[in-house]
Simulated scan of single mutants.
Amino acid sequence: MDSLLQRRIAAVLLFIAAAIAILLPFASATLLTIALGGAACAAGIGQLLRLGGEAGLQGKVFRGFSGVLYIAAALWILIDPVDSEISLTLFAGVLLLIEGLMELAGGAASPSPLGGLVVFDGVITAIFGLLLVIEWPSDSIWALGTLFGAALFLSAINLLRGPKPAETT
Rank of each mutant, 00 (worst) to 15 (best):
W76L: 10
L36F: 05
F91I: 14
G122R: 14
A74D: 05
P163H: 01
L104D: 02
R63H: 11
A21Y: 04
G145C: 13
L5N: 11
L4Y: 11
A156F: 03
F153M: 00
S3C: 14
L159W: 10
A29I: 10
A72Y: 02
R50H: 06
G145E: 09
P25W: 07
L159M: 02
L36G: 11
I16S: 05
A109W: 07
L78P: 11
G64V: 00
I79N: 00
G44C: 06
A43H: 13
D2S: 02
W76I: 01
L48R: 02
T169W: 09
R161A: 10
T168L: 09
I77A: 01
M102T: 08
R63N: 06
G44Q: 06
L78H: 02
G44T: 08
P111S: 10
I20W: 06
T168Y: 09
A166P: 11
S155K: 14
G53C: 10
G64N: 05
T168P: 04
A156V: 05
W136A: 09
V68F: 09
V82M: 02
P163F: 09
A29K: 00
I127T: 15
L131I: 15
Q47L: 12
I141T: 10
F153E: 09
A105T: 12
L144R: 13
T168F: 07
D80F: 06
P163V: 00
G122T: 14
K60W: 07
A151Q: 04
S112V: 10
E99K: 13
T89R: 05
S84C: 03
D2G: 04
G67R: 10
G53K: 11
A19K: 07
G56S: 12
Q47N: 12
S110W: 08
A72V: 11
L97A: 04
F62C: 07
A40L: 12
G115L: 02
F153D: 12
I86F: 08
P137H: 14
A156H: 03
I124Q: 15
L90R: 03
L114A: 15
A55D: 07
A126R: 13
W136M: 12
L49I: 06
I141A: 09
